[in-house]
């Protein structure tokens, strides 16, 4: 990918956030039984190297403050209820991203008696980000893709 295209993407992300959400995008991270690799990559987004806050994206400590849920892990039986409650607690319009191979479709564990095998079995997922774990750059790209359909989803949620 050329450098020009890269900087275009970056400007596009910032513009989309301003357009769609007014000011900034707030993300709540939901761990639904992941191995923590995806969580570490997500933490890396806010370090000085990737510095996601310059785009107006922030991680918040409560789903009630969040516009977007980043769900990691394949939704185990114990955390199924927690994932549902978190989704219900988030304000509309909300959007769910499946982060990592496990959240996309079960991954190594798959669908078993103790695991649901993917977030899309429980919640409506907007964007799938595979990778074990996905790079912080891949997460950034996934957030950008999700914002493209943010407006449509907002309308459908309210009706």
């Amino acid at each position: 990918m050329s450098e020009q295209k890269d900087s275009d993407l970056e400007i596009k992300l910032q513009q989309r956030i301003k357009e769609v959400l007014g000011k900034s995008l707030h993300i709540r991270h939901v761990d639904s039984g992941s191995c923590n690799a995806c969580d570490f990559e997500m933490n890396a987004l806010s370090n000085p190297i990737y510095d996601i806050q310059r785009f107006g994206v922030d991680f918040v400590p409560s789903p009630r403050h969040a516009d977007m849920l980043l769900v990691t892990g394949g939704v185990t039986r114990h955390l199924e209820e927690a994932v549902r409650k978190t989704y219900n607690a988030a304000a509309n319009p909300k959007i769910v991203l499946a982060v990592g191979t496990c959240a996309c479709g079960g991954g190594m564990a798959g669908q078993t008696y103790a695991g649901n095998g993917g977030v899309d079995k429980i919640l409506p997922v907007a964007v799938y980000i595979p990778g074990c774990p996905p790079r912080p750059q891949a997460l950034l790209e996934g957030i950008l893709r999700a914002l493209d359909q943010y407006e449509d989803r907002g309308e459908s949620n309210e009706s």
């Binding site: 990918m1 191979t101 996309c104 479709g105 079960g106 991954g107 190594m108 798959g110 993917g118 964007v127 799938y128 980000i129 595979p130 990778g131 074990c132 996905p134 790079r135 750059q137 891949a138 790209e141 996934g142 893709r145």
Partner: peptide, 28 residues
Amino acid sequence: YTKCIFCGLCASVCKVQAVQMTNDYHLA
């Protein structure tokens, strides 16, 4: 890719290099 863990074992066992890993991460 809902199951792949990107370990690279398939690429290492392939004797004729028909399977190779690339550095493309744009999978979202």
